[in-house]
Write a protein that binds this DNA or RNA. Structure first.
Lengths: 112, 112
DNA sequence: CCGGTGTATCGACATCTGTCAATATCGATT
DNA sequence: AATCGATATTGACAGATGTCGATACACCGG
């Protein structure tokens, strides 16, 4: 059993184009970007982000992306572990919300 | 034999958090982000970007990342096809240069 | 306490990906 | 032309990844 949540740290690194990335920083940044490097996860993120309160229930996410529920849960977990989404269970339902600033941090690193 | 270079188009899409991404836009954006989702490629990008004239010779890239030359060539090709690097051969040497604005476009889409 | 519903985990599978050694290609130099 | 040095391509292989069905795990309403 892994740690309670083991979310990846807030992402490292000075802007890519400033100075050569060290091996460890590159690993860490790549882990975060990998979580974004999938069309389904990008769609999930954007649906959540465009929803009221920037959060959405799993039940609202399965149909739009047209994939099986376990698959959607899997993708949401990856996004949560990478720190882009947070999970809060209310009753039977699980709500995933955009973590404010998480995408911006990546954007900052990429920005020239 | 594929087309001469078949570089991916300049990347699509309004900011992620504005409105739900369509399936095709998501595919296209994911293709671009996938090219960035590898520690070696991030390091190559940052080394190139931090070099004089924002370009570097393959011969200068192999040693820093500590991988075999064919592997480095492979990664550079992926970055070039994704539109982040451009290749210019001068004599025996191949120089890869950062394509201005290419990273910023991704950053814009991610930015909240 | 029991059935039902929403979500997560597991196991399996096909596919994709990163890596290297071997080899081909291309350009320069003798 | 013969060779040498730099880069690209090929083939192979281990490991990661996306997907699903089956199943387990809450939580709620009777």
């Amino acid at each position: 059993m892994p740690a309670a949540l083991d979310v990846i740290q807030p992402v490292c690194c000075a802007p890519l184009v400033r100075e050569p990335l060290g091996a460890e920083d590159a690993e860490e940044l790549a882990r975060a970007i990998k979580a974004l490097a999938d069309p389904t996860r990008l769609r999930l993120l954007s649906i959540v982000a465009a929803s009221e309160g920037r959060e959405a229930c799993v039940c609202d996410l399965t149909e739009p992306v047209g994939l099986a529920q376990p698959t959607v849960s899997h993708h949401l977990k990856i996004l949560a572990e990478a720190g882009f989404l947070s999970r809060s269970k209310r009753g039977t339902w699980a709500y995933y919300a955009l973590v404010p600033g998480s995408l911006d941090r990546i954007a900052e690193v990429l920005k020239g």
